[in-house]
Design a protein around this nucleic acid. Sequence first.
DNA 1: TACTACTCTACTGAATAAGTAGACTATTAT
DNA 2: ATAATAGTCTACTTATTCAGTAGAGTAGTA
Lengths: 136, 136
Amino acid sequence: MLSKKTQYGLKALGYLASQYGKGPVLISEIALKKNIPIKFLETILLLLKQKNILDSKKGKGGGYFLADAPKKISLAIALRIIEGPIAMLPCVSLNFYKKCEDCNEKVCALNKVMAITRDATLKILEKKSLQDLIDE
Amino acid sequence: MLSKKTQYGLKALGYLASQYGKGPVLISEIALKKNIPIKFLETILLLLKQKNILDSKKGKGGGYFLADAPKKISLAIALRIIEGPIAMLPCVSLNFYKKCEDCNEKVCALNKVMAITRDATLKILEKKSLQDLIDE
DNA sequence: TACTACTCTACTGAATAAGTAGACTATTAT
DNA sequence: ATAATAGTCTACTTATTCAGTAGAGTAGTA
């Protein structure tokens, strides 16, 4: 299950996608519209900025905005930043790979099944973008 | 990511699948072959028994064994018992559904994307069985 | 009846999740 | 210049889950 942090992050990105091109959006506006605790949201947006998904402007008339067009940012990218690995096991993660102790991946059946699952998930999350997070 | 508990559980089920039809298997044997802390493994096997995936025999010559043929037990079933929900969000879980607060699912774009992801994952996990957890 | 092996309750330490508080810094409008 | 605004950053806190352990109890078998 995704953490609350990730849910909030994706909701916020969806809102920013819907406002793309309209200039900076206040944290407080995002928090209000998406029912997210504002201080918690701050830390999430800051993280996304540090990872170059978002950009911001300080001072009056400031706020956060997408660093690129919604279509250009995949959900896989966003998820990896906020939540971490997409795969179900470290030994099948592409971006957060970690070898299993005492387990030969060449022979491990669990590894094979989880790699297949990862591929199916990734196929979707890499195709879908922030554009797809805009509520109808 | 799956918890260690789930990893251990699936490994153990894979081993029991490989020994299916050969009578009860000692917890200590599973623990040894799969490098699982024995006391931790006990609790996992007990859970699986309570959920009717496993059966056991006490006393000398006792141990754990699959309650049904490996082919008959899907990974989706096993995962739901040990790990919990397969979906990424409660509001798209089929077996652990929980409504989002302040969020209309009819309109929520995140909900739609996650439902698609869930379907892709489930398509695999429901087709794969404990048979597929037997190491080559 | 002794031995074996599963059953169950209770506990522990460490890590992560979820969120809060408050000081600080940069920008803009007046 | 200087308020007022709005993001930045550090440092907590509290609760829950994770991962694992200890030990007594119960049931079945030779």
